[in-house]
Nucleic acid binder design. Sequence first.
DNA 1: CTACAAGTTCAAGTTAACTTGAAGTCAAGC
DNA 2: GCTTGACTTCAAGTTAACTTGAACTTGTAG
Lengths: 144, 144
Amino acid sequence: MESMLTITDVSRRSGVASSALRFYEERGLIASERAGSGHRRYPRSVLRRIAFIVFAQRIGLTLEEIGAELAKLPADRVPSRRDWSRLSGRWTKRIDQRIAELQRLRSGLTECIGCGCLSIDRCSLANPADMAGRKGPGPRYWLG
Amino acid sequence: MESMLTITDVSRRSGVASSALRFYEERGLIASERAGSGHRRYPRSVLRRIAFIVFAQRIGLTLEEIGAELAKLPADRVPSRRDWSRLSGRWTKRIDQRIAELQRLRSGLTECIGCGCLSIDRCSLANPADMAGRKGPGPRYWLG
DNA sequence: CTACAAGTTCAAGTTAACTTGAAGTCAAGC
DNA sequence: GCTTGACTTCAAGTTAACTTGAACTTGTAG
């Protein structure tokens, strides 16, 4: 059975633009075979891989990190449910850390800014030591 | 008393690089007076303003949004504690939304990827409708 | 057979939030 | 008088994750 998908098929089913799919391929996150014409053909299993990529992005991983995770999947066969859940298991901790950070910020909102200390020097929430200027150039994201 | 601060003073006390301080000024987030030499001089109150900016960034606001918030402060006097807490009050909701999103993702991690459905089409967490391709060009951040 | 849609590559553009570099000014110490 | 250091402006570079455009080739419907 000829069940390979075109790039438009994959784009429509995954919600990810074709340009992004080519970009992911360039970065080694997904792979494709080629039809005689040179057009990309994808196996159905790529959809799960893409879902995983999107999911991981929402959690906050960079494409580079996602690539590193995907590299741990078996190369010789279509990954099983166990394979996938082994990967995602590590993220739980990461999510928990982000949640904790946000909760810390949330309480700081009322306790620190709303409080009377008003001292940037003494306030642990707006403290040089734990925030700015760490990532070098480029945008600094919401979490150091 | 001559208690104005130089840009290096402010940078050291806030942990924000001087280049960033100039950038914030260009964007209208902070202001400075000038010494006869043309060098910037800041009142002490700028430190609280900068703390607020950094805090807001960690919560996930863009500089543009932060600018809009800061514009709501009184222009004719140094903002009071009430002024500040009025601003930050609105953020609580926002933080809660992010926390909820992360918790949703966290449970999806075990329930969806770890589960047997394995169908990208049926999985509400990796669903085209609520995720990709919304922000136009540029990076897509961890939250739609 | 001819449109026209869909696919290809490759280079360059986009956004946010800054940083870096070049070229010049100004004040203080020796 | 001169060097050093802090400061200035302005233009261009950086990073991530893509998108857009140009220039071409292929596949398909009529």
